[in-house]
Design a protein around this nucleic acid. Structure first.
Length: 196
DNA sequence: CACTAGATGCTCT
DNA sequence: GAGCATCTAGTGA
């Protein structure tokens, strides 16, 4: 699958792309080692129609990458200490993105463990802040092309092993809580325990 | 297991 | 200055 084809897939509505990203892998090769995460939980965020989105009130220095083409990393600092990662979606000019909420570390577990401290393997990338930490992501990477960057790589599953994807309301927001825009792999141990 | 309180600092109004 | 797209440790059962 070529980067152009993947970018085409990502250039659709975030709520359509978000469930499809379950099972994809994201790799970050940092100075202290490479880590690959298989995505198990996502959330969709849109633009002017989505009050919970960072892009709701239009472009700012922080969120401007959301307004560009699909397939770029949007990283923001949450509560002053957690780097959270999104993949931008939708056509160029329309703001939307998919928040990566959890994943399974499928390569570089020892490196991820160094970054996260002594936690269970299934908890290494559980929760958006922990996923960012396990991958070694920071705001410096916001705006990177995840399809053509040397240190970042988003890849579709090899053989599409059919997985059951569940959906429900998004977590940790106070607006537009009725939209079922959170998606997760049914029963997966890397998804928050009470929400599998 | 369920629930809560507090840390913490950036972003935009 | 208000408000967070969060996390951990703590309590109580």
């Amino acid at each position: 699958v070529t980067p152009d084809k993947v970018r085409g897939l990502l250039s659709r509505a975030s709520w359509e792309v978000a469930p499809e990203l379950i099972g994809w892998t994201l790799t970050h090769e940092a100075a202290d080692g490479p880590v690959t995460v298989e995505i198990t939980e996502t959330e969709a965020y849109a633009g002017p129609l989505d009050p919970a989105s960072h892009a709701y009130r239009g472009p700012t220095p922080r969120n401007r990458v959301m307004f560009g083409p699909a397939g770029y990393l949007y990283v923001y600092l949450s509560y002053g200490m957690h780097w959270c990662a999104n993949i931008t979606t939708g056509p160029d000019g329309e703001a939307s993105a998919v928040l990566l909420r959890a994943g399974a570390v499928v390569a570089g577990a020892s490196v991820a463990m160094e970054r996260r401290g002594n936690v269970r393997e299934t908890a290494l990338a559980r929760g958006p802040g922990n996923l960012g930490r396990a991958l070694g992501l920071t705001g410096a990477l916001s705006g990177s092309d995840v399809l053509r960057s040397p240190s970042l790589r988003l890849q579709p599953p090899g053989t599409a092993g059919q997985v059951q994807v569940a959906s429900g309301p998004r977590i940790g927001i106070t607006k537009a809580t009725e939209l079922p825009w959170r998606f997760w792999r049914q029963g997966d141990p890397t998804v928050s325990a009470t929400r599998r």
